[in-house]
Structure formats: C-alpha cells, structure tokens
Computed example of a mutant assay.
Amino acid sequence: MRPEIAVLDLQGQYRVYTEFYRAEAATKTIILVNGSLATTASFAQTVRNLHPQFNVVLFDQPYAGKSKPHNANERSLTKEEEGHILLELIDHFAAEQVMSFSWGGACALIALSQRPRTLERAVISSFSPIINVHMNDYLTRGIEYLGACERYKVGELINDTIGKHLPSLFKRFNYKHVSTLAEHEYAQMHFHVSEVLQSNLGGALEAATNINVPVLFMNGEWDEYTTPLDARLFGKHIPQSHFVTIQSAGHFLDMEHKAACRDSRQALIDFLSATPAEKRVRFHPRPAQDQHAIAI
C-alpha cells in the first residue's frame, strides 16, 4: 500500500507534504488531521482502518514532518491559518470527509465552520471544548518545558499523561520523536498552548455553531484529558452531532490495544458509510473484551 506523494504549494507561501492512499473501488476521500507535535506516521493504524474502503489523505503542517524542509518556519502559525490550509487541501482533493486527532480538532472545526463545498461528514477524535483540571495541569507543565526547550521532559510528560495507556513500544517511539524535534516545533507548540490557556478553547465552540454537516465525536472511556462527557458539550452547538465512547481506551484510542482498534474502526466505518437518512443514529460499539497490545 504505497501512497502517491506530492508537496503542494498553498497560498503562495506554504509547501505541504501530502500522501494520497488511492483505492480504485472507493467513492469517498477522507483527510486526516494530525495532533500537535505529530506527523503522518502517527496515522499508520488509522489508514489501515479506513483503506481501501476510502481514499485517504495524510499531510504534515508546514512546520512539521516532511513539510518542514520545504518551509522557512520563521514564525508560528495560528489555528486559523492551519484551518485555511486544511480548507485548501479539502478543495484540492475534493474530500468529502475529515477526521482529526487531539489538538488537530481545533483547526478541523475552524475549517468545518467555513462549510467547504465538498464536505459531507467529519470525525473529531480525542478532543473536547473545555480545559478540565487534568488537561490544565498537562498544558501548564508542558508550556514550561516547551519554553525552556527541555526535550526529555516534554517526552516524559506526554508518556506519563495523555500517553499513559499506550503500549511500551509506542511510548518509546513517542519519546524518541518528541525529544528530537527542531526548536521551531517547540516554539510552535508553545504558541498554541499559550493560545489555548488564554481562551480555554472558546474559539472551538464558537466555530462549531456554523457547522452544517454530521460530526462524530469519538473519545476514550479512560481519557481524563478530553473526556466523553466534556465532548458532549458540542451537542448544544452542532445540530447533527454524534458521540461514541471507545471502551477501555485512553487518549490514543486505536493505538492502545486490539479491542480499542477494532471498536474505533467499527465506529468510523459505521458513521462514514451512513446514508443521509441514517444521520441521526448514535453509534455505540461493543464493549472491549480484551486488551492485547497491537503488534507493530
């Protein structure tokens, strides 16, 4: 399963690395939006969950991953700018669907609020519209370590908090990745965390009120940082909102164990494949029966 690779010129100022996993029988295309400090590599399991039922597009933000060498990275990007980049990618690939993970949900909601012409459905995973006590502690410590560029402390913090339910192999990968990032990537994350702590994600709810497509919010039962209960606050702002809780899973959902992977995939396929007449259905995957680590 090899993707078609391209570096796209967007807005005349950003070069964005993309991977397009084409499936001949697929009729829909979905774009996956990374969380902070993540790259296209973090969606390896999700691609396997969605392809070949769907064409799948991955991309790196201009400051990250394989986009990084193609950009000057002289300043940090706002979530609004990331949202506009996503809008251009949706238009370029004529994508009908979007799925975001973690902090990628902020720019995804901004893009959705602009009502892109081709978009039909969206999935927002491991995201909520408020900063609860656990998330506030994580971000407060994170902004200190990011500001001082304390690489190893950032890696340890992620594994001890939002990543605590990951298999040990994934934790080692996370630690190696996060502790070897460029200084401008730490500055970018520091900028985003500062924005979030100042606004308490108020912009996410404001953007949500203009969304006119069905949106599935998917959260882990054990996720203390973006809880299923907090995510349900979006239901007051998005008329066609749907919610699913992945049993016995934390923040990283399909990466944590086989049952969470299975249930995440089932929830995605059920929602993304639903016809317009089924749009008010709420999806509830079966409770997890086992907790074996995914083989890598």
Rank of each mutant, 00 (worst) to 15 (best):
I143Q: 11
T18R: 10
T29G: 00
V154P: 04
Y138D: 01
S264F: 15
S128F: 07
M189I: 10
Y175M: 12
V56E: 05
Q289K: 11
E19K: 01
H242F: 02
M135G: 01
R115G: 04
T78Y: 09
P239G: 07
H92N: 12
Y175T: 13
L146T: 07
H251D: 00
E183D: 15
D160T: 08
T180D: 11
T118S: 15
L201T: 04
S264N: 13
I162T: 13
H192N: 02
N132E: 05
V56C: 05
A259G: 11
D9N: 15
E96C: 01
N212C: 12
E195S: 07
K279A: 05
F271Y: 08
R172E: 15
I5V: 15
T161G: 00
E88H: 06
L229D: 14
V33A: 12
T118H: 10
G235Q: 13
K258H: 03
H84Y: 11
I269R: 01
R282F: 06
T46A: 12
Y225M: 08
G35V: 11
P129M: 10
E206Q: 09
F271D: 00
F173V: 14
I246S: 09
P69E: 03
L119D: 00
F170L: 13
K236N: 15
L216K: 01
I5P: 06
R141G: 14
A106I: 05
E150Q: 07
V123N: 05
C149W: 12
L233I: 12
A106Q: 07
A106W: 00
E183S: 13
S199A: 01
W103E: 06
K164M: 03
Q114Y: 03
I294R: 04
E206F: 02
L229C: 09
K258Q: 14
T140C: 03
H92I: 09
E185W: 05
K66R: 14
P228D: 03
P167Q: 00
V16F: 03
R75C: 08
F20I: 04
I5A: 08
T78P: 02
M1A: 14
V16K: 02
G147I: 03
A25D: 12
R15I: 06
Y138P: 03
F173I: 15
K28L: 10
H184S: 12
Q61K: 14
E24S: 11
N210M: 13
F283D: 05
M99D: 04
G142C: 06
H284D: 03
Q198P: 02
P129I: 07
G83S: 13
Y145D: 02
N49Q: 14
L166Q: 04
L229T: 10
A72P: 00
V281S: 09
R151F: 11
Q240C: 02
T29M: 00
R172M: 09
E19Y: 07
A267M: 00
